[in-house]
């Protein structure tokens, strides 16, 4: 065994995190699952609407919102943070819209202008108010999921539920899930055919802004765990993997949850084995799942086409 790679100890990597070290890795794994599941569900719609770049944009441009909310309220509480992220996220989408509609600049360039400028403003603010703001670019960019078990516990009726950011993330996942169930058909028709949606009285602009608002909340809740850069992978990888496997939106949502579980588990395992950043390990794990699914599907297709000619008359593919 090369000494650059630590030895793989089955018990230490595969068993211990979920038994004797559960108190530590249980929270981390659960947080990873909640983050990836929330991001993946919202990400499905970003992928469908060909707006993957918007995830990138919003994840960066919430920074000034956070800083302003912090300066305003003087706390890093959940609600000021959500309010700041919401305002910043929706401002980003409006700004991108305005640039792309009122000038000759195309949408991708407009996205590039809007989010990097807002991120820069956030960095300016953090450096100007570095005395007052307990936020640095490092923490926003990278996050640290390993700190989750060290956070103060939320208690409800005397019972400890879990670390603050984990409870918040669970609430966010619950809200995302409920919103998708409640507005499933509006999201579907507005994403597939906005003309029909509008003709039916469903305003696609509202759907778009609603989605961006939820995206801002999800991103800001995931910040502390994985940071602004890795969150993009969490938004896109699960849905991209799901889209390789199925062509039904409802099935995509289910596969995203499985992908989230695998990413979290692989992330923790990799961290224990290699002693690396857990957030990064979760993304690498998620990407590995994507790669394996891709390879298996390519292999199955190869078998399928080499064994018998495609039948043009088959009517049921699913």
């Amino acid at each position: 065994m090369n000494e650059l790679i630590p030895a793989f100890d089955w018990h230490q990597v595969m068993v211990a995190p979920w038994t004797e070290d559960l108190e530590l890795f249980g929270w981390i794994g659960l947080m990873g699952l909640l983050v990836t599941a929330s991001c993946g569900l919202v990400g499905n719609y970003l992928i469908l609407r060909r707006m993957a770049l918007m995830g990138d944009a919003v994840s960066h441009s919430v920074l000034p919102g956070l800083v302003i909310a912090f300066l305003w309220s003087g706390s890093r509480g959940t609600w000021p943070m959500f309010a700041g992220a919401l305002v910043a996220g929706v401002t980003t989408t409006l700004l991108i819209d305005a640039i792309h509609r009122r000038t000759r600049v195309k949408q991708d360039a407009a996205i590039g202008i809007a989010f990097s400028t807002l991120f820069a403003i956030g960095m300016l603010l953090t450096s100007i108010y570095s005395q007052q703001v307990d936020l640095d670019a490092e923490c926003v960019l990278y996050g640290e999921i390993a700190f989750v078990p060290l956070e103060p516990m939320v208690t409800l009726g005397g019972v400890e539920i879990g670390p603050v950011s984990l409870v918040r993330m669970a609430g966010v996942l619950l809200v995302v899930g409920l919103l998708i169930i409640a507005f499933y058909k509006e999201l579907l028709v507005a994403s597939f055919d906005d003309g029909l949606a509008r003709a039916m009285g469903i305003n696609p602009a509202w759907v778009h802004h609603g989605l961006m608002a939820i995206l801002s909340i999800v991103v800001v809740s995931a910040f502390e765990a994985v940071g602004a850069i890795l969150v993009i992978a969490m938004l896109i990888l699960p849905g991209a993997t799901a889209s390789l496997i199925t062509r039904r939106l409802s099935h995509m949502h289910a596969i995203v949850l499985v992908h989230a579980l695998l990413s979290a588990w692989l992330g923790v395992s990799l961290e224990v084995w290699l002693d690396c950043s857990i957030g990064a390990a979760m993304v690498v794990g998620g990407a590995a799942v994507f790669a394996v699914v891709w390879a298996v599907i390519a292999w199955l297709n190869h078998l399928h086409t080499s064994q018998r000619p495609p039948s043009p008359t088959s009517t049921n593919d699913l």
Binding site: L48, R50, S191, F192, D193, G195, T246, R248, L249
Partner: peptide
């Protein structure tokens, strides 16, 4: 006007 690759039947 629509994306026929959309994941619906």
């Amino acid at each position: 006007s629509v994306d026929w690759d959309f994941p619906v039947n």
